[in-house]
C-alpha cells in the first residue's frame, strides 16, 4: 500500500486503515523517534549557549515541538477524527486561560509588591519579644 493511497483511505474511514505489518509500523514510527531524539539533544546543547532570557524560551519551544510530534504521530491526532481532535486540543484552551490570567496578574502588579524590591527576611530568625508570632 503506497503512502498516498493509505492516507486517502484513512480519511474515508476515520483512521481504520492503520498499518498491518511490522515493517509498515516501524517505517511510520522510527523517523518520528529519530527527530524527537535529535530535538532532545539539540535542546541540551542549546542550553549551554549564552542567549540570556532566550535560553528558556528556546528550550520550551523545543519541548512544544516535541509535544506536537508525539501528539500528531504517536497519539494519532493526525487521523481525521473530529471528536478525538477536539478532546485532544481542549486542554490547550483551558491552560491558555490559566496562563493568560497568571501573566496578566504578574505583569500588572505594583512594583513595591515585587519581591526584588522587598527586604528578604526568610533567613532571619523569627522575632520573639512582644512582636509578631512566627507564622
Amino acid at each position: 500500500m503506497s503512502g498516498r493511497s493509505s492516507r486517502r483511505s484513512s480519511k474515508r474511514s476515520l483512521g481504520e486503515a492503520t498499518p498491518r505489518s511490522a515493517g509498515a509500523i516501524l517505517a511510520r514510527s522510527l523517523p518520528v523517534w529519530l527527530v524527537l531524539v535529535g530535538l532532545a539533544l539539540a535542546s541540551c546543547a542549546l542550553a549551554y549557549l549564552p542567549m540570556g532570557r532566550w535560553n528558556m524560551a528556546v528550550s520550551l519551544g523545543i519541548a512544544a515541538a516535541k509535544m506536537l510530534l508525539i501528539g500528531l504521530f504517536f497519539m494519532h491526532l493526525r487521523r481525521p477524527d473530529p471528536l478525538l481532535r477536539l478532546a485532544g486540543g481542549a486542554w490547550l484552551l483551558w491552560v491558555g486561560f490559566l496562563a493568560a490570567l497568571v501573566f496578566a496578574d504578574q505583569a500588572t502588579r505594583a512594583p513595591l509588591t515585587q519581591p526584588e524590591h522587598m527586604e528578604d527576611r526568610t533567613m532571619e530568625p523569627p522575632e520573639t519579644a512582644g512582636g509578631r508570632s512566627g507564622f
Partner: peptide, 20 residues
C-alpha cells in the same frame, strides 16, 4: 505518551535553566 510529554517540559524547566 502524556507522561512522556509532561517530562518533555519538566526537563528544560528543572535541568536546563542557568546552564549557559
Amino acid at each position: 505518551h502524556l507522561i512522556d510529554v509532561v517530562w518533555m517540559f519538566l526537563y528544560p524547566l528543572l535541568y536546563l535553566d542557568g546552564r549557559a
